[in-house]
Design a protein around this nucleic acid. Sequence first.
DNA 1: TCAAAAGTGTTCGCTATACACCCATGG
DNA 2: CCATGGGTGTATAGCGAACACTTTTGA
Lengths: 237, 237
Amino acid sequence: MSEINKENGEQRYCYKYPHPSVTTDCVIFGFDGTRLKVLLVQRGIEPFKGRWAFPGGFMKMEESAEECALRELQEETGLQGAYIRQFHTFTAPHRDPRERVITVAFYALVRMQEVKGGDDADDARWFALDEVPQLAFDHDQILRRAEQALRQQIHFEPVGFELLPKQFTIKELQNLYEAILDVHFDRRNFYNKMRRLEMLELSDERSNPSQRKEAFLFRFNPQKYDELKKKGFRLEF
Amino acid sequence: MSEINKENGEQRYCYKYPHPSVTTDCVIFGFDGTRLKVLLVQRGIEPFKGRWAFPGGFMKMEESAEECALRELQEETGLQGAYIRQFHTFTAPHRDPRERVITVAFYALVRMQEVKGGDDADDARWFALDEVPQLAFDHDQILRRAEQALRQQIHFEPVGFELLPKQFTIKELQNLYEAILDVHFDRRNFYNKMRRLEMLELSDERSNPSQRKEAFLFRFNPQKYDELKKKGFRLEF
DNA sequence: TCAAAAGTGTTCGCTATACACCCATGG
DNA sequence: CCATGGGTGTATAGCGAACACTTTTGA
């Protein structure tokens, strides 16, 4: 179908019909113990120079979209083998003013602590979800879709496992679920429910008593957690 | 980025880097009152000539994936404005043996009664989900993903509304949910639950007594149904 | 008249929900 | 010593799950 033309030393790839460019973008979610955040990078070139956007890039001919997203993620954050999930492909004809581009969008769940960047000087920064500025291209739309997808997938995905540090307090876990679902749970009922599910195991250590009273630290029990995800692990609504 | 080359009267579209082709495929779900079905078309050309596959085709430069899927659907089934939903994009490098193709996949929910095709002579036929033959390309995988997506989305989507005829018995509704979720509900509990949800309204007519006893016919109450979908309308598991 | 399918009601146990209470700690 | 946050317990209402009973209709 394609053909290679060599003219004046330049290699070009030619097709009978026009082909769009294909990219992947990655909405990187992190959690600081209280609020849900996303990692944005500032564009250094036109169009939308200076605006913030999700990291992403062109897909190579010998990689799948997943491989592409993981590669970009590694380049941006240094993270290897992060948890990613494809959630939508954006195809509106003029979403990129330069040429036709379709974008396979992923979200990633990462531990903020393990990610470089975030220095104010850097061109990559974490933003709380309700403080995200106007983004480049149609990335506002992409963000809204990502949030929605995460909310719907939360009952089947290792949200806590990937977003929280290895050890965490139940309050942090509750904050996480509240941030994603945008609801409020009764503190005591949340505790009881988590205990009954038996997916957490008590750690030896205690939390840094930054608050009045120090709290227990927990770890996920991977087996139990996986079982619950398979069945569709539901919190109260 | 692209350039048009005219050589020996042929117009060609040229790029500095290779571009994949982009197609949409559509998994069309229907329901015959008992079992969930999919509409397949038989390939008339190589590769995979003679094998069954999902209808689909190349995306044009001035249409979105959604528009492309609706157009293909219209061409295949005559249906205008069917309910479609994008569920995954398939990007494995060699999924098409000819060239690099990425496919944005949709599923459609349609009323079988309103769809042409299905004649044995025709090149389009309905297959029950457990009678689908080996498909062309990676369409087996696409089907599995579509089923999975439908199962997960069933609590937020107008599954019944789009798949059932305007009027239906509660038994048909139960069969539908059982077919999608692959579970069995107690007949009486399902009745009671549906009554309590108040999303159905009684029709004047009665069912054709093809069975021993004729049954009530119901319609969806669109307002109530939409409310329930927003909240995430859950059946028992 | 009997079997199959549809419609209605009842009981039981679990759990979501709403609370009250006590303990630990730092100001 | 008291305000704040953390851990545990209890009562209630509502729903899911199991199941009995009645009615209708065709063979």
